[in-house]
């Protein structure tokens, strides 16, 4: 079947199998920031935005994406320069495998805070990001960077 999706601002027409997951289609189409890590929708490494809201692309059928707008880490990296700097200066990306998914989530979180949907405090930020697992950093370096970026005191 064919789907039309807007990926990082550009309309694409893709031939997919109805049973394809969005993660596999995105990777096949070259959006390689989207990582496969857990296969069970548990780790957050495959996080993308669908119509501006975070979704686990490993658990979304690509067929349901027809007409929708998808944003991957590639699409927001330029906007997130300040965040990238903050994370890098903590050395908290470490192996980096969870980093693009986390960046997508932080991007969404920033918008939610701006819209008053999520409170701007440490606990709320941690709760929002709980689904993004990291095995290297122990999270603290990530959080120092994220709090700084979001201006969480």
């Amino acid at each position: 079947m064919k789907i039309k999706v807007k990926v990082n601002g550009e309309w694409k027409e893709w031939e997919i199998d109805p049973s394809d997951y969005l993660l596999d289609v995105l990777r096949r189409e070259g959006y390689l920031s989207v990582k496969r890590a857990c296969d069970t929708g548990t780790c957050g490494a495959c996080t993308v935005l669908v119509d501006g809201f975070p979704a686990l692309s490993c658990s979304v059928l690509a067929a349901t994406m027809d007409g929708h707008e998808i944003t991957t880490a590639e699409g927001i990296a330029d906007e997130m320069e300040e965040y990238i700097k903050a994370l890098a200066s903590e050395g908290a990306e470490q192996c980096g495998f969870c980093s693009p998914g986390l960046m997508v989530m932080v991007y969404a979180l920033k918008k939610e805070i701006e819209n008053g949907k999520v409170e701007k405090n440490e606990e709320a930020v941690k709760r929002y990001l709980i689904g993004n697992l990291c095995r290297c950093s122990g999270y603290l370096g990530q959080q120092r960077a994220i709090f700084k970026f979001l201006g969480v005191k």
Partner: peptide, 13 residues
């Protein structure tokens, strides 16, 4: 910062 940090965080392949 790590030499590979920008590439890794931006999701380079």
């Amino acid at each position: 910062p790590k030499k590979d940090s920008y590439g890794l965080i931006r999701g380079k392949p």
